[in-house]
Protein backbone atom coordinates (compact mmCIF):
# COMPACT_ATOMS: atom_id res chain seq x y z
CA UNK A 1 0.00 0.00 0.00
CA UNK A 2 2.89 2.39 0.80
CA UNK A 3 4.23 1.89 -2.73
CA UNK A 4 0.82 2.75 -4.21
CA UNK A 5 0.73 5.88 -2.03
CA UNK A 6 4.17 6.89 -3.33
CA UNK A 7 3.01 6.57 -6.95
CA UNK A 8 -0.22 8.40 -6.12
CA UNK A 9 1.74 11.19 -4.48
CA UNK A 10 3.53 11.80 -7.80
CA UNK A 11 0.19 12.00 -9.61
CA UNK A 12 -1.21 14.24 -6.88
CA UNK A 13 1.75 16.61 -7.27
CA UNK A 14 1.17 16.81 -11.03
CA UNK A 15 -2.44 17.78 -10.33
CA UNK A 16 -1.30 20.21 -7.65
CA UNK A 17 1.06 22.10 -9.96
CA UNK A 18 -1.58 22.61 -12.60
CA UNK A 19 -4.16 23.51 -9.95
CA UNK A 20 -1.74 26.15 -8.67
CA UNK A 21 -1.44 27.60 -12.17
CA UNK A 22 -5.25 27.61 -12.38
CA UNK A 23 -5.38 29.27 -8.94
CA UNK A 24 -3.02 32.08 -9.95
CA UNK A 25 -4.81 32.85 -13.21
CA UNK A 26 -8.21 32.66 -11.55
CA UNK A 27 -7.11 35.00 -8.77
CA UNK A 28 -6.39 37.85 -11.18
CA UNK A 29 -8.95 37.18 -13.91
CA UNK A 30 -11.80 35.14 -12.35
CA UNK A 31 -11.45 32.80 -15.33
CA UNK A 32 -11.03 29.03 -15.05
CA UNK A 33 -8.41 28.80 -17.73
CA UNK A 34 -8.70 25.37 -19.39
CA UNK A 35 -5.96 26.24 -21.88
CA UNK A 36 -3.26 25.75 -19.24
CA UNK A 37 -3.28 21.97 -19.71
CA UNK A 38 -2.74 22.22 -23.46
CA UNK A 39 -0.14 24.97 -22.94
CA UNK A 40 1.75 22.56 -20.68
CA UNK A 41 1.58 19.89 -23.39
CA UNK A 42 2.74 22.41 -26.03
CA UNK A 43 5.78 23.39 -23.97
CA UNK A 44 6.64 19.74 -23.29
CA UNK A 45 6.48 19.04 -27.04
CA UNK A 46 8.77 22.03 -27.65
CA UNK A 47 11.31 20.40 -25.34
CA UNK A 48 10.83 17.06 -27.10
CA UNK A 49 11.43 18.75 -30.46
CA UNK A 50 14.63 20.40 -29.18
CA UNK A 51 15.96 17.11 -27.87
CA UNK A 52 15.05 15.05 -30.92
CA UNK A 53 16.53 17.75 -33.21
CA UNK A 54 19.75 17.54 -31.13
CA UNK A 55 19.74 21.26 -30.39
CA UNK A 56 22.42 22.52 -28.03
CA UNK A 57 21.35 22.82 -24.39
CA UNK A 58 21.30 26.65 -24.60
CA UNK A 59 18.97 26.58 -27.61
CA UNK A 60 16.82 23.92 -25.96
CA UNK A 61 16.35 26.10 -22.89
CA UNK A 62 15.76 29.23 -24.99
CA UNK A 63 13.23 27.51 -27.23
CA UNK A 64 11.32 26.04 -24.29
CA UNK A 65 11.25 29.37 -22.47
CA UNK A 66 10.30 31.15 -25.70
CA UNK A 67 7.37 28.81 -26.34
CA UNK A 68 6.24 29.26 -22.72
CA UNK A 69 6.27 33.04 -23.03
CA UNK A 70 4.57 33.07 -26.45
CA UNK A 71 1.79 30.72 -25.34
CA UNK A 72 1.36 32.71 -22.12
CA UNK A 73 1.04 35.95 -24.11
CA UNK A 74 -1.49 34.44 -26.54
CA UNK A 75 -3.50 33.08 -23.61
CA UNK A 76 -3.41 36.52 -21.97
CA UNK A 77 -4.41 38.39 -25.15
CA UNK A 78 -7.32 36.01 -25.80
CA UNK A 79 -8.70 36.56 -22.32
CA UNK A 80 -7.76 40.10 -21.32
CA UNK A 81 -10.58 41.99 -23.02
CA UNK A 82 -13.17 39.47 -21.82
CA UNK A 83 -11.72 39.67 -18.30
CA UNK A 84 -12.02 43.45 -18.26
CA UNK A 85 -15.61 43.20 -19.46
CA UNK A 86 -16.19 40.54 -16.78
CA UNK A 87 -17.35 38.11 -19.47
CA UNK A 88 -16.02 35.17 -17.48
CA UNK A 89 -18.08 32.51 -19.22
CA UNK A 90 -16.91 33.66 -22.66
CA UNK A 91 -13.35 33.75 -21.39
CA UNK A 92 -13.71 30.15 -20.17
CA UNK A 93 -15.05 29.11 -23.59
CA UNK A 94 -12.22 30.98 -25.29
CA UNK A 95 -9.63 29.20 -23.18
CA UNK A 96 -11.34 25.89 -23.98
CA UNK A 97 -11.20 26.67 -27.71
CA UNK A 98 -7.56 27.68 -27.44
CA UNK A 99 -6.84 24.33 -25.78
CA UNK A 100 -8.52 22.44 -28.61
CA UNK A 101 -6.62 24.46 -31.24
CA UNK A 102 -3.32 23.80 -29.47
CA UNK A 103 -3.99 20.06 -29.15
CA UNK A 104 -4.92 19.88 -32.82
CA UNK A 105 -1.75 21.74 -33.82
CA UNK A 106 0.35 19.37 -31.71
CA UNK A 107 -1.36 16.38 -33.39
CA UNK A 108 -0.72 17.82 -36.86
CA UNK A 109 2.93 18.65 -36.22
CA UNK A 110 3.99 15.68 -34.06
CA UNK A 111 1.35 13.04 -34.80
CA UNK A 112 -0.91 11.37 -32.26
CA UNK A 113 1.31 8.49 -31.22
CA UNK A 114 3.11 8.76 -27.90
CA UNK A 115 6.54 10.36 -27.68
CA UNK A 116 9.10 9.60 -25.02
CA UNK A 117 11.41 12.43 -23.94
CA UNK A 118 13.61 9.78 -22.28
CA UNK A 119 13.62 6.66 -24.46
CA UNK A 120 13.66 3.24 -22.83
CA UNK A 121 13.07 2.25 -19.24
CA UNK A 122 13.07 5.16 -16.78
CA UNK A 123 15.72 5.25 -14.05
CA UNK A 124 14.30 4.62 -10.58
CA UNK A 125 15.40 5.61 -7.09
CA UNK A 126 15.17 2.69 -4.67
CA UNK A 127 14.87 3.06 -0.90
CA UNK A 128 14.42 -0.16 0.99
CA UNK A 129 11.67 -2.18 -0.66
CA UNK A 130 10.18 0.91 -2.26
CA UNK A 131 11.01 2.72 -5.47
CA UNK A 132 10.11 5.84 -7.37
CA UNK A 133 10.97 6.83 -10.95
CA UNK A 134 13.46 9.71 -10.98
CA UNK A 135 11.05 12.02 -12.91
CA UNK A 136 8.45 11.23 -10.23
CA UNK A 137 10.90 12.19 -7.49
CA UNK A 138 11.72 15.44 -9.29
CA UNK A 139 7.99 16.11 -9.66
CA UNK A 140 7.42 15.79 -5.91
CA UNK A 141 10.42 17.98 -4.99
CA UNK A 142 9.53 20.60 -7.60
CA UNK A 143 5.84 20.55 -6.69
CA UNK A 144 6.46 21.00 -2.97
CA UNK A 145 8.98 23.75 -3.67
CA UNK A 146 6.62 25.66 -5.98
CA UNK A 147 3.70 25.27 -3.54
CA UNK A 148 5.77 26.64 -0.64
CA UNK A 149 7.21 29.49 -2.75
CA UNK A 150 3.81 30.45 -4.04
CA UNK A 151 2.33 30.41 -0.54
CA UNK A 152 5.02 32.82 0.68
CA UNK A 153 4.80 34.89 -2.48
CA UNK A 154 1.03 35.33 -2.19
CA UNK A 155 0.95 35.96 1.56
CA UNK A 156 4.20 37.72 2.40
CA UNK A 157 5.36 39.82 -0.57
CA UNK A 158 4.18 43.19 -1.99
CA UNK A 159 3.47 41.42 -5.31
CA UNK A 160 1.35 38.87 -3.46
CA UNK A 161 -0.55 41.69 -1.72
CA UNK A 162 -1.15 43.26 -5.13
CA UNK A 163 -2.35 39.93 -6.47
CA UNK A 164 -4.70 39.46 -3.53
CA UNK A 165 -5.99 42.99 -3.94
CA UNK A 166 -6.86 42.32 -7.59
CA UNK A 167 -8.40 38.99 -6.61
CA UNK A 168 -10.55 40.77 -4.02
CA UNK A 169 -11.66 43.64 -6.25
CA UNK A 170 -9.70 44.63 -9.34
CA UNK A 171 -11.45 48.02 -9.72
CA UNK A 172 -10.65 49.06 -6.14
CA UNK A 173 -7.08 47.83 -6.63
CA UNK A 174 -6.76 49.93 -9.80
CA UNK A 175 -8.06 53.01 -8.01
CA UNK A 176 -5.30 52.48 -5.44
CA UNK A 177 -2.71 52.63 -8.20
CA UNK A 178 -2.24 48.93 -8.93
CA UNK A 179 -1.68 48.22 -12.61
CA UNK A 180 -3.96 45.20 -12.77
CA UNK A 181 -3.34 44.59 -16.49
CA UNK A 182 0.40 44.32 -15.89
CA UNK A 183 -0.13 41.99 -12.94
CA UNK A 184 -2.48 39.81 -14.99
CA UNK A 185 0.04 39.71 -17.82
CA UNK A 186 2.81 38.53 -15.48
CA UNK A 187 0.53 35.98 -13.83
CA UNK A 188 -0.40 34.51 -17.24
CA UNK A 189 3.30 34.15 -18.05
CA UNK A 190 4.07 32.56 -14.66
CA UNK A 191 1.03 30.28 -15.10
CA UNK A 192 2.34 29.26 -18.49
CA UNK A 193 5.77 28.41 -16.98
CA UNK A 194 4.20 26.30 -14.22
CA UNK A 195 1.98 24.53 -16.77
CA UNK A 196 5.04 23.93 -18.94
CA UNK A 197 6.98 22.48 -16.02
CA UNK A 198 4.19 20.06 -15.22
CA UNK A 199 3.76 19.16 -18.91
CA UNK A 200 7.46 18.27 -19.08
CA UNK A 201 7.45 16.35 -15.79
CA UNK A 202 4.28 14.41 -16.67
CA UNK A 203 5.74 13.68 -20.11
CA UNK A 204 8.97 12.43 -18.52
CA UNK A 205 7.05 10.26 -16.09
CA UNK A 206 4.89 8.57 -18.77
CA UNK A 207 4.85 9.75 -22.41
CA UNK A 208 3.83 12.80 -24.39
CA UNK A 209 0.47 12.71 -26.14
CA UNK A 210 -1.42 15.69 -27.58
CA UNK A 211 -4.30 15.18 -25.12
CA UNK A 212 -2.17 14.72 -21.99
CA UNK A 213 -2.94 18.25 -20.83
CA UNK A 214 -6.69 17.77 -20.99
CA UNK A 215 -6.63 14.78 -18.64
CA UNK A 216 -4.55 16.73 -16.14
CA UNK A 217 -6.56 19.94 -16.33
CA UNK A 218 -9.80 18.10 -15.53
CA UNK A 219 -8.27 16.72 -12.33
CA UNK A 220 -6.71 20.10 -11.52
CA UNK A 221 -10.03 21.83 -12.07
CA UNK A 222 -11.78 19.44 -9.66
CA UNK A 223 -9.03 19.97 -7.07
CA UNK A 224 -9.26 23.74 -7.53
CA UNK A 225 -13.04 23.73 -6.97
CA UNK A 226 -12.84 21.38 -3.99
CA UNK A 227 -10.01 23.34 -2.38
CA UNK A 228 -11.82 26.62 -2.65
CA UNK A 229 -11.04 29.10 -5.36
CA UNK A 230 -9.64 31.71 -3.00
CA UNK A 231 -7.37 29.71 -0.70
CA UNK A 232 -4.08 28.26 -1.87
CA UNK A 233 -3.90 25.86 1.12
CA UNK A 234 -7.20 24.30 0.05
CA UNK A 235 -5.93 23.81 -3.50
CA UNK A 236 -2.82 22.03 -2.18
CA UNK A 237 -4.68 19.63 0.11
CA UNK A 238 -7.53 19.00 -2.38
CA UNK A 239 -5.05 18.12 -5.15
CA UNK A 240 -3.74 15.25 -3.06
CA UNK A 241 -7.14 14.19 -1.69
CA UNK A 242 -8.79 13.79 -5.11
CA UNK A 243 -5.91 11.58 -6.23
CA UNK A 244 -4.84 9.69 -3.10
CA UNK A 245 -8.32 8.60 -1.92
CA UNK A 246 -9.42 7.03 -5.26
CA UNK A 247 -5.98 5.44 -5.84
CA UNK A 248 -5.98 3.96 -2.32
CA UNK A 249 -9.47 2.52 -2.79
CA UNK A 250 -8.52 1.06 -6.19
CA UNK A 251 -5.27 -0.30 -4.80
CA UNK A 252 -6.88 -2.02 -1.84
CA UNK A 253 -10.19 -3.36 -3.14
CA UNK A 254 -10.37 -6.43 -5.32
CA UNK A 255 -12.75 -5.96 -8.23
CA UNK A 256 -12.29 -2.18 -8.29
CA UNK A 257 -9.99 -1.31 -11.19
CA UNK A 258 -8.58 1.86 -12.65
CA UNK A 259 -11.70 2.21 -14.81
CA UNK A 260 -13.50 3.29 -11.61
CA UNK A 261 -11.04 6.13 -11.02
CA UNK A 262 -13.07 9.05 -12.37
CA UNK A 263 -16.23 7.75 -10.66
CA UNK A 264 -14.33 7.72 -7.36
CA UNK A 265 -12.75 11.14 -8.05
CA UNK A 266 -16.19 12.67 -8.60
CA UNK A 267 -17.58 10.86 -5.53
CA UNK A 268 -14.75 12.20 -3.34
CA UNK A 269 -15.16 15.69 -4.83
CA UNK A 270 -18.92 15.60 -4.28
CA UNK A 271 -18.56 14.54 -0.64
CA UNK A 272 -15.92 17.21 0.05
CA UNK A 273 -17.95 19.89 -1.72
CA UNK A 274 -21.03 18.78 0.22
CA UNK A 275 -19.16 19.08 3.53
CA UNK A 276 -17.20 22.24 2.70
CA UNK A 277 -19.00 23.96 -0.21
CA UNK A 278 -16.84 27.10 -0.08
CA UNK A 279 -13.54 25.28 0.04
CA UNK A 280 -11.59 23.15 2.51
CA UNK A 281 -10.28 26.06 4.58
CA UNK A 282 -12.92 28.69 3.89
CA UNK A 283 -15.44 29.32 6.63
CA UNK A 284 -19.06 29.16 5.56
CA UNK A 285 -20.24 32.48 4.12
CA UNK A 286 -21.90 34.72 6.63
CA UNK A 287 -25.64 34.89 6.19
CA UNK A 288 -27.13 38.38 6.50
Amino acid sequence: MVQILIYSFVMGTQVLLLALALFLVYSVSKVQNFALGAIGAGIAYALYFSISAHLQIVWTILLTIGVSVVLGIINFLLNERLTRKQEHLFALLTSFSFAIVLESLISIVFGTDGKNIIPGILPVYEFGVFQIPIPGLITICFGVMIAVLLFFFVHFTPWGRMLRAIAENSFSAESSGVDSKKVRFLVYIVGSFIAGAIGILAGLNTALTPTMGFQLIIMAFIAFLVGGVSDIRGTVIASYLVVLIPETIIGSLEGVSLNWKMVLVFAVASILLGLRPNGLFVRESRKS
Partner: peptide, 13 residues
Amino acid sequence: ETFPKGTSDFRST
Protein backbone atom coordinates in the same frame (compact mmCIF):
# COMPACT_ATOMS: atom_id res chain seq x y z
CA GLU B 1 -7.48 -5.29 -13.62
CA THR B 2 -9.10 -3.08 -16.25
CA PHE B 3 -8.03 0.44 -17.12
CA PRO B 4 -9.78 3.07 -19.27
CA LYS B 5 -8.61 4.17 -22.70
CA GLY B 6 -6.09 7.00 -22.52
CA THR B 7 -4.50 5.88 -19.23
CA SER B 8 -0.81 6.70 -19.16
CA ASP B 9 0.27 5.88 -15.59
CA PHE B 10 -0.12 2.22 -14.65
CA ARG B 11 2.27 2.05 -11.71
CA SER B 12 -0.40 1.75 -9.01
CA THR B 13 -2.23 -0.94 -10.98
